[in-house]
Amino acid sequence: MSSLVRRVLPWLAATAGTLVFVLLIWKGPWWADNGHLGKQLSPGVGAVVTGFRTTVVAVGAGIIACFGLYYTDRNLRHTREKDRDQAELTREGQVTERYVAAVQLLASEHLTERLGGIYALERILYDSPRDQFTVTKLLAAFLRQHPTACAEDHQCGVVAEDVMAAFVAIARRPRRLDRAFSINLRELKVCGAEVYGYDEESQADLESVDLDGACLKGADLEFANMCGAGLDGANLEGAILDGVNLAVAKLRGANLKDAHLSRVNLSSADLTDATGLEVESLLAGDFNLHTKFPPEIMQDERMKKRLSE
């Protein structure tokens, strides 16, 4: 019923407008000034009537032009919306095709094809924000299914190139998501990984990533955002952690021997039973009363003085 009304109403409005227009042309002058015009059509009266009717015609033409512009603009907007929707559907279809092709390459037995699949997925991370969560989870699953040659004692072996590429793709993904989401990368072995940023704007994003037991020996994580990351039992020996945000991170039992900790943020981080810590390195970073250090570190007079300031 409402659809019928919407179709009939414009016709009724147009008919009523035409009727009013005709009446104004015909009787309008006398309606406007009947007391002076009279019934005799003298030259003066004719000039007034002609002028009135010309004005009515001009106003009517302006109104019609305005309606024409309105409907033209509405049609153009509708066309643009349809074109935009069609372009979005086309783009989504292309992204889906690229995604499927990348997944097929990821399952290949050949290293070069797997690398191609990883790089294709990394490109999708940048081109399609809505697929960032799915692609990141897929790359994480790939990493969990492809263990490296690192031994159980965290002695580093040869890290597969595709494993390193997938980890870097996750770490360097665009920082678009409204909130961090957990990524399971437990026991990952990526010794010597380079995911550093040139500044805080290009930093790697490993926020809330679960890297418990991971081997990141010698990794360059400079400026990385690892807020809330799980690093319990992780091997960070010799890792470059300058400027890294490790606030609220879990580093219980982590190996931080020879790690670079300049300007590292350890606010509220848990380093209970962490090994390899040196007071001089810790003093070059930031921490607070809620940061948990091993007892021998907490007993150092320099740490006590720093915490009391």
Rank of each mutant, 00 (worst) to 15 (best):
N265A: 10
N265I: 06
L266V: 04
L266T: 05
L266C: 09
S267V: 12
S267E: 05
S267Y: 12
S267L: 13
S267H: 14
S268I: 03
S268C: 08
A269R: 00
A269N: 00
D270G: 10
D270C: 09
D270F: 05
L271F: 07
T272K: 09
T272P: 06
T272V: 14
T272H: 14
D273P: 14
D273K: 15
D273Q: 13
A274K: 11
T275G: 10
T275S: 13
T275W: 02
G276H: 11
G276W: 07
G276I: 07
L277E: 03
L277S: 02
L277P: 01
E278W: 09
E278R: 15
E278H: 10
E278Q: 15
E278K: 13
E278P: 13
V279I: 08
V279C: 07
V279K: 02
V279A: 08
E280H: 04
E280K: 03
E280T: 08
L282D: 06
L282M: 05
L282R: 07
L283Y: 04
L283N: 06
L283G: 05
A284N: 09
A284W: 02
G285L: 02
D286C: 10
F287N: 03
F287G: 02
N288R: 02
N288E: 06
L289S: 08
H290K: 04
H290G: 01
H290N: 04
H290C: 00
H290P: 00
T291M: 00
T291S: 04
T291R: 02
K292G: 07
K292L: 15
K292M: 11
K292W: 09
F293E: 07
F293T: 04
F293L: 11
F293Q: 04
P294N: 06
P294C: 07
P294W: 01
P295A: 12
P295D: 13
P295L: 11
P295M: 07
P295W: 04
E296S: 10
E296T: 15
E296A: 14
E296G: 11
E296D: 13
I297P: 03
I297D: 05
I297V: 14
I297Y: 03
I297H: 03
M298A: 14
M298N: 11
Q299T: 11
Q299P: 09
Q299H: 15
D300A: 13
D300E: 04
E301M: 12
E301Y: 06
E301V: 10
R302L: 08
R302I: 05
R302K: 15
